[in-house]
């Protein structure tokens, strides 16, 4: 169980790193381009909003599998 959590936590960290790297590539912020739009939002904006939301979701998942989430009782 402990090993599984550790693996999941590691997976969260790797996913967060990938998202961060993606955020600075032309995939997320192509220069001088605002198409394709989504609900009227320009491309760079909706992609970076999506990536930001993903990071917060990963934070939520991360707190569930973080090595420290069972240590409340010790404090």
């Amino acid at each position: 169980m402990k090993i599984k959590k550790k693996t999941l936590w590691l997976l969260c960290c790797i996913s967060a790193s990938i998202i961060v790297i993606l955020g600075f590539t032309v995939l997320a912020i192509p220069a001088n381009t605002f198409e394709p739009q989504l609900f009227g939002l320009p491309y760079a904006l909706w992609v970076s909003i999506l990536l930001s939301v993903l990071l917060v979701v990963l934070t939520i998942l991360g707190t569930l599998v973080h090595p420290g989430n069972r240590q409340t009782e010790e404090e």
Binding site: A16, G23, S48, S52, V53, L55, V56, L58, T59, G62
Partner: peptide
């Protein structure tokens, strides 16, 4: 500006 602050803040909470 979103990437400048909001994206960085989202990474900050992680």
């Amino acid at each position: 500006s979103w990437l400048f602050l909001a994206f960085s803040d989202a990474a900050m909470v992680f």
